[in-house]
Design a protein around this nucleic acid. Structure first.
Length: 424
RNA sequence: GGAGGGGUCGCAUAGUGGCCGAGUGCGCCGGUUUGCUAAACCGGUAUAUGGUUGUAAAGCCAUAUCGAGGGUUCGAAUCCCUCCCCCUCCGCCA
């Protein structure tokens, strides 16, 4: 959430930032400004009226105690009350409209975010690892996994419909190995605290991180209880900072968790329907950090580095991409995507998205930091995949395939997996 | 699912219509005393919004907030209604 005061005082900056993002939030923004103006004028009048009423009520109490007649004041009170009721009926909807509109405005891009209008304008920051051509036609992970009997999409479709996967035997074991390796790396070497959180949460929790109110159609919802399935554990991990006031010395705080993620993918039917790339359910290791606002960008580099380390150790070539203004997610002020090379598809695929949300989520969930001079400021939250497990498995299959269709298991996974290859 | 109890200022509590934005204890901050620490004593200690003064730091005025939202009343922490959350017991159950 953006601060109404900031919008009021810097309308042109905000207008430009929202325009750079390219969304359709400008009309909402203009409506906020207008309603805010109306609201303030109503509120000023209302406050004065309330002040008068409070005084009169005290006075009446005093007169009654002294057994003095108060009928003229009581009469005035009648009139004040009806005027007040009138104004309150104007004030209430204005206030709630402004609140709702504010909740639907995205975060403002950081100054260092490249300007752009489409994902084409994203900027490659660095490429790590070498993309070396196989000496044979590379298969994609769908074919590899199916032929090895470790992935079964037909079975999954029978169980749940399109967009799901069944992992079988070595496939299931490999998925678990990847997840364990990632969690161990982040907890033992990167200083993250492992958490296990609910997968089903309230609407308020979803609103705090920004999934609601705008993106309800992307979420699975339980109809009886009005609860939502998490699309990422960013939701639950970040919400752990709700209503917290932390001291600057306690920060940064780093947490990780392994959870399933549930996404309806409502806007992307027919896209990436093959394989593990875009499933309605997938597991992901999430990284969340909280820090002081001034450390936002520094922390983003650290977070991104931790996600990158996974790929380095798995020896999968990847590149780091700075998203342009138009491609930023709702809550993000700046984002680096990690993209892995997929030989079977002959293209790069996103495998992690690391963002700083600055104080955007902190405002929504009332997360503050007490500084050295005991002043309070909003906290800063960051999140990133560390990494998406299904996509990582797909990347390993494609990058480590041999001519005969068998798969080399990366060195760091061998102790988890218990062998160095998967053969036909 | 059934029955009951409860949500007050960081924590613990007091408070059943005006003297309560809210007492007390603890904690915390500042000070006095002190070789140091402790103790004792004194003072301070919520947030948000609007208006206003100021270059600013900050100040002043007003309003709102005792789980949330409505209502009754001249006046609500206190009475009524709805909702949320927590706890205990019973039932069911992995």
């Amino acid at each position: 959430m953006l601060e109404i005061k900031y919008l009021r005082e810097n309308p042109n900056l905000v207008r430009k930032a929202l325009t750079d993002r390219g969304g359709r939030s400008i009309p909402d923004f203009e409506r906020i400004l207008q309603k805010d103006k109306d609201w303030r004028s109503v509120l000023t009048e209302l406050d004065q009226l309330r002040a008068r009423r409070n005084k009169a009520a005290d006075e009446i109490g005093r007169l009654k105690r002294e057994k003095v007649d108060a009928s003229s004041l009581l009469k005035e009170m009648d009139e004040l009350k009806s005027r007040q009721k009138n104004l309150e009926e104007k004030e209430r909807p204005l206030k709630s409209d402004i609140g709702n509109l504010l909740l639907s405005l995205p975060n403002l891009p950081d100054a260092s975010v490249p300007f752009g209008k489409t994902p084409e304008d994203n900027q490659v920051v660095r490429e790590v690892g070498k993309v070396t051509p196989k000496g044979f036609p590379a298969k994609d992970h769908h074919d590899l996994g199916t032929r090895l009997g470790i992935l079964d999409f037909e079975f999954a479709a029978q169980l749940s419909g399109a967009g799901f996967a069944v992992y079988k035997g070595a496939g299931a074991r490999l998925e678990r190995s990847i997840a364990n390796f990632m969690i161990d790396l982040h907890t033992k070497e990167h200083g993250y605290k492992e958490m296990a959180t609910p997968f089903i949460v309230t609407a308020q929790t979803m609103t705090n991180t920004g999934q609601l109110p705008k993106f309800e159609e992307d979420l699975y919802k339980t109809s009886e209880d009005n609860l939502f399935l998490i699309p990422t554990s960013e939701v639950t991990l970040t919400n752990l900072f709700r209503d917290k006031v932390l001291t600057a010395e306690e920060l940064p705080i780093a947490m990780t968790s392994l959870t399933p993620c549930f996404r309806r993918e409502a806007g992307s039917y027919g896209k990436d329907t093959r394989g593990l790339i875009r499933n309605h359910q997938f597991t992901k290791v999430e990284l969340v950090r909280a820090c002081r606002l001034e450390d936002s960008l520094k922390e983003l580099e650290i977070l991104t580095g931790h996600a990158e380390e996974v790929l380095k150790r798995l020896e999968i070539p990847y590149r780091v991409v700075a998203l342009c203004t138009a491609d930023l997610g709702f809550a993000a002020a700046k984002t680096y995507d990690l993209e892995v090379w997929m030989p079977g598809e002959n293209r790069w695929r996103e495998i992690s998205s690391c963002s700083t949300c600055t104080d955007f989520q902190a405002r929504r969930m009332n997360f503050k930091v007490k500084g050295a001079a005991k002043e309070r400021e909003w906290g800063c939250t960051l999140n990133g995949s560390g990494l998406a497990v299904g996509r990582t498995l797909a990347a390993i299959l494609e990058n480590n395939q041999e001519a005969d269709g068998s798969i080399r298991i990366p060195k760091v996974l061998q102790s988890y997996f218990g062998s160095d290859k998967i053969s036909i």
